[in-house]
Design a protein around this nucleic acid. Structure first.
Lengths: 239, 239
DNA sequence: GTACGGGTTAAGACAGGGTTAACGGATACG
DNA sequence: CGTATCCGTTAACCCTGTCTTAACCCGTAC
């Protein structure tokens, strides 16, 4: 189930969008101003978010900037009547991923929402991280030619973490992504993390993959060589 | 350096685009038909690709489909004069990530290219000061390729100081920024400053970074030669 | 000398993560 | 119909990392 957030002060338009997305099996939460949106995005896990620009309390551009400042790189679609080039560039400058001008066709909105949402958590059949291969169709995970033995929840958990890699995910976000709305009220997550770690450590010869704990935040899975690549890239790069 | 591919049969338009991207430090290879594009994409590595739809040999939609079938999930931007809704939906259906209608402003093209290229390649929000890199997304701090071991508070403290650099920050301001309203009533700040200093000094080979004490005022972190804070990230670097 | 600002260090409290085992529900199979 | 197995949740327990606190050090200014 795709889960997205709409931040829009026009209640009628918002209702229309929510309804339309619902038909397409996309669950859409709604906030009517920027502050409320910021609140929701930090508490829940969304695949992407849509932002109106003109809004009371906090406008869309500011919210977009704030979200990026906080280091969240959730895909963002700007949704506004301002169609000048400067406005668009401003939107991209603030860190948005797409820009749709009102009035727009609902079907185009749906298409763009799906694209943005699925890029990170979509229909890609194989996820590769270091020497770990996740085959989503077969629900199989292979680490250095060894097939890991993972329960359904453990597999989902690993999938979620690999998708976010190398970024850490907050506990709440992980819970939401794995269990949805009916979450266990205990330390179940800890146990499953433990199971996943045990499986990853089974092929001990792989210091390549680390499921790290970010204290006070959550967890992150990283391929060891990624960090090095980034630094190397940094030298030649960063124009 | 960003590396992208353009598949377009209109030679003049292609040349214009290549030139324009070059100015923005984006290297752009060019193929004049679908088959050639397929060839190139399989031999080289690109951060994203732009596809014209109307082309001889193999049209853009077919190429897009083919690429997806091969399991390549490189971001694709459709580039075409067909602006009807049906055409757009067809484009998204084929697996593209964005759709830009001709004629378009070059600056908008550049913005969208950068967005598509950077999202995949893990370009994220970073604070850079001298040879220190703070990755807010990963919550990691690297100094000369060594990853610093920082507790949550120590990380926040360092972040606050780096953001203020090279300006000094008063004790009260720091406390407010790190702890908010519930501040410890002891010399806790001193201790955390000490921890941060210890981590910075660990790679002693860096005389580049100094966490200075401004007596009676507070603290300031500075890069030895260049006091300037460089921000790299979602925002397009416009140097 | 002493008062003060800052630096260093260690101890203790505590939260949070890690580990393990047991229970109950579901499913498959005999 | 009963048994075995798997899986997820829960809770109890242990252990590590983190933060605060306080004591002590040093230099300098008065």
């Amino acid at each position: 189930m795709i889960n997205v957030l709409l931040v829009e002060d026009d209640i009628d338009l918002a209702a229309t969008i929510v309804d339309y997305l619902d038909i397409e099996s996309i669950n859409c939460d709604h906030a009517s101003n920027g502050l409320m949106g910021l609140e929701l995005i930090q508490r829940n896990h969304y695949q992407m978010m849509m932002l109106d620009i003109n809004m009371p309390k906090m406008d869309g551009l500011t919210l977009c900037n704030t979200v990026r400042e906080k280091g969240l790189d959730i895909p963002i679609l700007m949704l506004t009547a301002r169609d000048s080039l400067e406005n668009k560039l401003q939107g991209f400058e603030a860190g948005s991923d797409d820009y749709l001008v009102k009035p727009f066709a609902m079907r185009e909105l749906v298409a763009r929402v799906q694209v943005l949402a699925k890029r990170r958590s979509g229909e890609v059949k194989r996820l590769v991280l270091g020497d770990l291969i996740l085959d989503l169709n077969q629900r199989s995970a292979q680490l250095q030619q060894r097939t890991l033995k993972l329960s359904p929840i453990a597999f989902k958990l690993l999938e979620v973490l690999v998708r976010a890699s190398p970024q850490p995910m907050g506990r709440q976000h992980i819970m939401q992504a794995v269990w949805g709305d009916e979450q266990p009220d205990s330390n179940s997550l800890k146990v499953h993390i433990h199971h996943v770690r045990k499986q990853l450590d089974a092929s001990k010869h792989s210091p390549l993959l680390k499921l790290e704990t970010i204290s006070g935040i959550g967890f992150a899975i990283k391929a060891a060589d990624q960090g090095d690549l980034e630094i190397v890239g940094n030298k030649n790069n960063e124009n």
